Simulated scan of single mutants.
Amino acid sequence: MTYTAQMMKAYPAEINLDRGRLAEVIDTLMSCAQACTACADACLSEPSGELPRLTRCIRDNMDCAAICTTTAEVLSRHTGYDANLTRAQVQSAIQATKTCGDSCAEHARDHEHCRVCAEACRQTEQALNGLVSQLTSSGAVPRQPSQAAPQRR
């Protein structure tokens, strides 16, 4: 069991999503962020003649890594939950993984690191699409952000 799954299981309040599924999505996002970071670095290690061709891929990798990390962080926090913010962040991550996956796929035949990254992005995009449908079809009316609970002493 991952630490993410352990933390979801240990969370003391109600979560309106399947905790196991949510943990899987968070872990997938973090794995994708790592793949994107490593791919950007690998692109930078290619021969200098390749760099102009890889510039957009490097940028897409860096953007995707940052957005996936932020999305995992947002999905890990439940106190004062704001469904509208969470949904928007997940939709942003769907776009980032699609963009990065497409960008890496253009270079996948020539660069193994791009092939691996494109695969990670596609898998993450699928996981997020499954989650966003749960966020929008829950039937719950989004509430205003709640006040943070006072700390217990």
Rank of each mutant, 00 (worst) to 15 (best):
P52R: 05
I58M: 03
M1L: 09
C32N: 04
T28C: 10
I94M: 14
L135H: 12
A127Q: 12
D27K: 01
L51Y: 12
I26H: 04
I26C: 06
Y81W: 09
S138K: 03
R59M: 11
T55N: 09
R122C: 07
C114E: 14
Q126T: 12
C68Y: 03
D102V: 02
Y81S: 01
T37Q: 05
E24L: 07
A140C: 05
G20K: 08
D60T: 00
S137K: 06
A118Y: 05
S45Y: 06
E50A: 10
A149Y: 01
A65S: 14
S138P: 06
P12L: 15
S92K: 06
L54S: 07
A13V: 04
C32R: 02
C39H: 06
M30H: 04
L131T: 15
A42S: 13
A93S: 11
Q89D: 15
I67V: 15
D102H: 04
D110Y: 14
R143Q: 10
V141K: 06
Q144R: 08
T28Q: 14
L29E: 01
Q95V: 15
A72H: 01
A33W: 00
S137V: 07
T28F: 07
N84I: 07
N61Q: 05
G130Q: 07
Q147A: 15
V25G: 05
K98I: 08
Q95K: 08
A108K: 07
S138M: 13
Y11H: 12
L29A: 02
A40R: 01
A148K: 15
C121N: 11
Q89G: 04
P12A: 11
E125L: 02
A108F: 07
D102G: 14
D27S: 04
R19K: 08
S76D: 03
S103Y: 01
L54P: 10
C68R: 00
S76L: 01
R152P: 00
K98L: 10
K98G: 05
V25T: 10
Y11M: 04
A105K: 13
I94Y: 12
A96P: 15
Q34T: 11
Y81K: 04
I58S: 02
Q89V: 15
A105C: 05
S137F: 10
S103A: 10
A88F: 10
C104L: 04
C57G: 01
R87P: 11
Q89T: 14
S45T: 04
A23T: 03
A38C: 13
L131G: 09
R152E: 15
T28L: 01
Q89H: 12
